[in-house]
Design a binder for these strands. Sequence first.
DNA 1: TATAGGACTTAGGATTCTGCTT
DNA 2: AAGCAGAATCCTAAGTCCTATA
Length: 580
Amino acid sequence: TSSCISTVHLGFGITSLPFPTSLPFIPASHRWEEEKKEDGIKWMQLEHRGPYFVPPYEPLPKDVQFYYDGSSTLELAVFFQKMGLYSLFQGQPLSSLSQEMTSEEQEIIKDLDKCDFGEIHKYFVDKNEARKALPKEEKQKLKEEADKIQEEYGYCILDGHREKIGNFKTEPPGLFRGRGEHPKMGMLKKRIMPEDVIINCSKDSKIPEPPEGHKWKEVRFDNTVTWLASWTENIQNTLKYIMLNPSSKLKGEKDWQKYEVARRLKDVVHTIRAQYRKDWKSKEIKKRQRAVALYFIDKLALRAGNEKEEGETADTVGCCSLRVEHIQLHPQLDGQEHVVEFDFLGKDSIRYYNKVSVEKPVFKNLQLFMKNKDPSDDLFEHLNTTFLNKHLQDLMDGLTAKVFRTYNASITLQEQLKALTNPEDNVAGKLLSYNRANRAVAILCNHQRSIPKTFARSMQVLQEKIDAKKKQVEEAQEEVKKAEDEFKDTKEAKAEVNVEKKKKLLQRLEEQLARMNIQATDKEENKQIALGTSKLNYLDPRITVAWCKKFGIPIEKVYNKTQREKFAWAIDMAGEDFEF
DNA sequence: TATAGGACTTAGGATTCTGCTT
DNA sequence: AAGCAGAATCCTAAGTCCTATA
């Protein structure tokens, strides 16, 4: 049941949603008039230039050779070294690659260890160096050329407005790099040709021209979807799309709608929690499994966990697809009762590791679900995301498993901001509180990043600065003492002034040291946590906007240009008393 | 009811840019 | 001018959830 978009003229062109928001929206400007759209209709006019095709393969100069015991050059060899994947394939069979080689090549190339990419590698390293060393004017020229492409292909017209496109370039051919232990790692991703591409636009628009001598696979006029072009990629045989940038009205509206659904969950979440607690004792095992899974999704912000085709992707799971081997039960652990230890790979093969004390019925149910099962058996064998989401839909219109993540993330930010922000703090102190609130959410959602390569070094630099500052503080302390002694001896006014002066200096240095220590703590706490994902996808931007307004923080301190563009709707809409 | 296909959001890593220090 | 670190941006994989079909 998709929501119908009705028409109310809102400031920067966001049409209103079918459900009311708690705050009146005061239009900042009337940029355009909207026509009412029917249910499921996404646009009335769509015009664009089609995708920008990445430059064709450039053969290597004759003197740059790929060697295999003897010698031969092929495009594949270039991908190999260019993507730095060679080492991943050493000692492995060439099965996925052999289909890309000519039979002649297959006859020759049997063993990757005998492949010599040295010259090709050097060629690209040199080329890269040369590019970096280019004079300023040359670099400027390249920049202008890129800007021109962006200008020509990077925008479309949607319902009379020029909108930025998110990804207007076709993906270049290369070796597929999946995340984690991906069975298709290293397969050749084919070049996208115009003949592969479906164009979507409006009938009466200027239909994009395919590149000289080529044809589109199809041109269609489907205004029930938002994509501009699509093609099927050859690795997983799935569709890829060209879509609008998050700054666009279409995406902004959708984003707003997402948070409104999450806010509606806020009103009923207590009922839902009462319901699943009741269901823990249901006679039907299926209901019990659903209730325990929902508890995890709510409490731990786990993803739904759809089934995946085995052997096609890395072995990762979400809530419904958890297996017995992914949890361990501890009746007692570290002074806590009913502890569940989670250890599994989630989206992007990011490890989820957590020890959680759960309510007793949950623990008992888990023991029941695990009884007489192998480690590789499903924990919730009667459950899947369809069944769970159907149930959620009955509990609230538009409710699905992922709404809990949005809801819990946003409500956590709001609560944490309330708890952590000290009105007496300066801007830097308040921003630290904001980051901490943001971090609480990132931890909840398990948004991780690899520790930056430069982390240890930059931490060391900071530590050295702290040590130096400590020394300064100590010296200043001695200075104060010296000055005090002198004053005691002489009782001169000049000496008294000096004491005050030294004390002030000491105080300033101590403050600087405290700030540095905070910075170091912040850095350390943040090294493995990615704040960006929650900020961009889970936190209702109106909470942030309201917080900024309330405490006089300039919005640029928390949102960069791109983020301000994406959240333009919220910046216009939210007052300081906005409540999620 | 199961499955496949389709459309869309969410995700972390790689690359590029920026602004500072040396 | 070069070198660097951190921020911003780009890239595209990997999820969710819906609909159509058998």
